[in-house]
Design a protein around this nucleic acid. Structure first.
Lengths: 218, 218
DNA sequence: ATAGTTGCTGACTGTTAGTCAGTTGTTGTG
DNA sequence: CACAACAACTGACTAACAGTCAGCAACTAT
């Protein structure tokens, strides 16, 4: 009898519905101004029910973070798939990251939120586990692509690939973070547009990895 | 009569005492587990008084953020002052950043906290103003040092200095952020120590800026 | 001595995350 | 069909806490 299975599916569906409602509310009003009652209303459920599916408000927001991360990962994979050379795949991932932050600022915000506050979660819970797994998955993906680039000769580096992946990831995250900061708060003193900044970074990064002999002449 | 002035000084002193108390409490228990009553107790003042000096809990924490930023800036200046060549100053600043995060993890945490959540402050208030001024000051410092390096010939770059400063700042922030993340959550799969990672990054950065003819042969 | 001013207090309020005893609806069984 | 067992859901309730404000204390000036 497929009752068990159906129940399972319905449960998953509910969880998704709640996340939809939560996105709607959180993205509209911002996390701190949104209440669990707001989310419950939007989901057409009672507040108590939310807590059957998510342990806390933070965990609910973490669910949204996860969605964002999946989306981002998909964009990375799609972008990388359009190229053959490893170095081009890396470049494509970089651009995809930028595009992700631009196209899904609310998901990006969720990612930044946790980035800046996990350090505060002294707590236990599987929350953190999931969070770190997500991060780890992206790192592995980048490492894989770097290896590909080294194998096909398009990337040349003195560094260990696993470390290099962390460095690249950290670098680009930081650069995009600062770009989104200045984009949001248009400082008087800044005369360049954000994309120029990113483009400069990509060029700079390119110099670090590229084997000129294998460079695509386009 | 110096009454006005004395009052002014005493007010400043109180503000400092409150910040001392707040640091003690926040650093011990973490921001979210600390209450304003805790801080009031530690400061031997009533809760109401805290609100005469700081508009909100967040603003109090921002006061701590500011202290951290000042400390960091001091470390940068001190580190840079030990060298003559611009490129060496830049390297020294990089190392100082790393040292700051290591020596003052709580201040660093405060900085990261706001980094990840300013995007949420739709609010007005001078808070954000101060916050951005702090950031701006560091950027200017980096720019100044980069210019120095270009002038003395130790730094060579195709990029505009103002943009380059942002890129470097973003990069290094991101790299240190990821390092402090993995330091805190020792992943099973990570076999290198954090400092190696940072050192790799510094080497990498060096390659981007350095004019080999002027390199210090030590 | 007294009026004015500034700084401090802590009981109070409003809000909200999180809980839980009870209700509703669904499934499987005699 | 009746009825027990179980699962999903409810919303009034509690506890905790940020932030307020009417009143008090201490200092200053005249």
């Amino acid at each position: 009898m497929g009752v068990q299975e159906r129940r399972e599916r319905e449960k998953e569906q509910r969880k998704n519905d709640i996340l939809d409602a939560a996105e709607q509310v959180f993205f509209e009003k911002g996390l701190s101004l949104s209440t669990m009652d707001d989310v419950a209303d939007a989901a057409e459920l009672s507040k108590g029910t939310l807590y059957l599916y998510f342990k806390s408000k933070q965990e609910l927001y973490l669910g949204i973070h996860q969605r964002g991360f999946v989306k981002m990962h998909e964009m990375f994979a799609a972008a990388a798939a359009l190229h053959n050379l490893g170095v081009d795949k890396i470049r494509a991932i970089g651009h995809a990251y930028y595009e992700f932050a631009k196209q899904y600022p609310d998901y990006y915000k969720a990612i930044m939120y946790f980035e800046g506050s996990v350090l505060d979660f002294t707590s236990d819970s599987e929350m953190i586990e999931i969070y770190h797994q997500d991060g780890h998955q992206v790192m592995e993906f980048v490492q894989k692509v770097l290896h590909k680039g080294i194998d096909d000769g398009s990337i040349v580096t003195d560094f260990q690939v696993d470390r290099l992946a962390f460095i690249l990831w950290g670098q680009i995250s930081g650069v995009i973070q600062i770009i989104s900061k200045i984009s949001q708060h248009p400082e008087k003193s800044i005369k360049f547009n954000p994309y120029e900044l990113f483009d400069d970074y990509m060029q700079l990064m390119g110099k670090l990895l590229v084997n000129p002999d294998k460079e695509d002449k386009s």
